[in-house]
Nucleic acid binder design. Structure first.
Lengths: 231, 231
DNA sequence: ACCTGAACACCGTTCAAGT
DNA sequence: ACCTGAACACCGTTCAAGT
């Protein structure tokens, strides 16, 4: 069969016709991001997305392979603020620190932490930039290749993993304080003879998850980048 | 209203009647664990659980509040091997190391990492034991209460978070090697001028996730427990 | 007391049909 | 070329009915 042009394909399409919400990957991603930032991640569905776009839910399949394909791209777009305008300095340790903090913030805001790592590398530009920045910093810090690769994965697992754990709570920032209050009082109700350490430290548990992340991140940077252990 | 015994409540129930798969939390949890260990986590459903038990799917609701209630208990049971028989020594750093490695192994095997932390503390015995062991070790290591609490959360986030990220791949151990192969070759196909660090380190990425976890865990222990930073 | 089964309000996805 | 809408094969959960 030959591909052939028909007369109609050369017609000029009126702009007014194109104005009514013509779908493409960009407008779909933006609508998905709006829903994810606004509500909780688990109420997101392709049907809700269709509603939000004023379009049949299945129109989506013209532009993405499946839901995962969409979430992966939405996730990558969410990461843009952490790579756009990022400039590496002559302090690789600080570069790593700034990058991981930015990645975490972007993931928490958009509730897409898990979709990022679900199926390995892609050509998605922000994921690749993050990998490049991190690996570059680790090489500049003087790590040998094999150790640099391992260390890269440590930072990714800690950053993305803790974001995945914190995201559900970070979403409802208002209720987080009272949730934590309740959890602490659950600990307080435990028998002190059976759980002595918990009864001492219970009131101090569930601090700011930002503080937790920074403590862990700085420890990893100190030990793995600034003063790596000799083998 | 008074609680009163009726004559029938004293009747001896024939054992043959009890033998036909009478439901309770224990047999339901065991069936769920079997399904989770055998297959992938996302194919688990209450309907599949009902089939496996030879029972209507909704019979489940006589014994658990909802699916999350079940998964939380299944998760806690999965953690039992990491706390049963655990003995703390006079080396708190090593106690932490052994505990976190055991917790990670248990979570990966049962694919229940995320269900553990989804809604804070409970009276589930293994979760509480893990908290107690960890907090106790941190206090014995000489950390002051506030730092000990932060450090506790760092270890939990790193252990559970990385298990949550690794679990989907750990499930299909057979296909993991070839998956990693493909990912590495994806990296190799990238333009070297745009991604110089990736093109150098690409072949070394995606090492054993056990090695990654141990590198990070030991770094955190060194920096936060053995040689904590002075404020 | 405990289980069944119909029913409700959803999912992601496919595919023939429309324009 | 792109969108629609019916349909398929599922979900978790509720509730009246059975025994």
């Amino acid at each position: 069969m030959l591909v052939h042009l028909t007369g109609t394909s050369l017609r000029v399409v009126p702009k007014t016709e194109g104005a009514r919400a013509r779908l493409n990957r960009d407008v779909i991603c933006r609508a998905a991001q709006e829903l994810l930032v606004a509500g909780d991640a688990e109420s997101f569905s392709l049907r809700a997305l269709g509603d939000h776009l004023g379009v049949d839910p299945t129109a989506f399949y013209r532009h993405f392979q499946d839901k995962e394909d969409l979430l992966r791209e939405v996730g990558d777009r969410a990461l843009a603020p952490s790579t756009k305008g990022f400039v590496s300095t002559d302090d690789p340790a600080d570069d790593i620190r700034r990058l991981c903090l930015g990645v975490r913030r972007a993931l928490l805001k958009n509730q897409v932490a898990l979709s990022i790592t679900s199926q390995g590398p892609t050509r998605h530009v922000n994921e690749l930039r993050i990998t490049e920045i991190l690996l570059d910093a680790l090489l500049r810090a003087g790590l040998e290749p094999k150790v640099a690769a391992l260390t890269y994965h440590v930072f990714i697992e800690f950053t993305v993993g803790s974001a995945a754990l914190d995201a559900p709570l970070a979403a409802s920032a208002a209720s987080r304080r009272e949730t934590y209050q309740r959890w602490r009082s659950d600990y307080r109700a435990l028998p002190a003879d059976e759980y002595p350490a918990i009864s001492i430290l219970g009131p101090k548990l569930y601090p700011s998850s930002d503080d937790v992340f920074e403590l862990g991140l700085d420890a990893l940077i100190d030990r793995l980048v600034i003063a790596p252990k000799k083998p």
